[in-house]
Simulated assay, not measured.
Amino acid sequence: MSAAKTKAQKIIDDNSVVVFSKSYCPYCRASKALLNEKHAKYFLLELDEVEDGAALQDALEEITGQRSVPNIFISQKHIGGNSDLQAKKGQLDDLLRSAGAIEA
């Protein structure tokens, strides 16, 4: 397994909510805004701001089949991108609560 894949998997395993993002991406911004609105605690990694960002993005594609950002995980489950997160708005509180990312 590549170092990037190991690192990406460790981040996913160690955090209840993870957003792999790019700082300039409008879809990423929309996802972060929604999570911030919910006062969710989440691990954010801006792939364009870390040295191994491209390798991590390749690794995420291997793990999830999704190349685009944001690439979102809740309770170690791949949620998908911004449209997937927005589509789950109705169940998001429950998902975040069960992940321990927002107060019960």
Rank of each mutant, 00 (worst) to 15 (best):
K32F: 00
D84N: 15
E61L: 13
I74G: 01
L34D: 00
A59K: 11
S21L: 08
S21H: 09
L35S: 01
L45C: 10
D14L: 11
L47M: 07
L56K: 03
G65V: 13
V50C: 10
S31A: 14
K38N: 01
G80D: 08
Q57C: 06
F20N: 03
P70K: 07
D58F: 06
C25F: 02
I12C: 09
L56W: 04
L56F: 04
D84W: 07
A54G: 10
L85E: 04
D48R: 05
H39A: 13
E49K: 15
H39R: 13
S75V: 06
A33N: 08
K77W: 06
G65W: 14
E62R: 04
Q86P: 11
D14S: 15
G65P: 13
A59Q: 12
T64L: 08
Q9P: 04
Q66E: 14
I63T: 01
R29Q: 05
K38S: 00
E51D: 14
Q76R: 15
D93Q: 10
I11E: 14
K10I: 06
D58T: 11
T6D: 12
S16K: 02
V18M: 09
V17Y: 05
C25P: 01
G81C: 07
D58I: 05
D84G: 09
E62I: 06
A30F: 01
E49W: 08
Q57W: 05
L85W: 03
S21M: 08
S21G: 10
K77T: 10
F43R: 08
V19H: 00
A30S: 04
I72Q: 00
R67T: 12
A40L: 03
G80V: 06
L60N: 10
K10Q: 15
S31Q: 05
G90W: 03
G90D: 15
N82H: 05
A55N: 13
S21P: 11
G65C: 14
D48M: 07
F73G: 04
Y42K: 04
G65F: 13
Q66I: 13
F20R: 02
E37R: 07
V69T: 10
A40D: 03
E37V: 02
S16C: 01
Q66Y: 14
E49L: 15
N82P: 00
R29P: 00
Q86D: 15
K7T: 11
Q86G: 11
G81I: 06
F43E: 12
Q66G: 13
S23Q: 00
I74H: 02
R29M: 04
D84M: 10
K10N: 12
N15W: 07
F73T: 05
Y24A: 03
F20A: 04
N82E: 04
G90E: 14
D48T: 07
Q76P: 10
P26K: 07
F43T: 09
V19F: 00
D93H: 08
K22L: 10
G65M: 14
S75K: 12
F43P: 02
V17R: 04
L44A: 12
K22V: 10
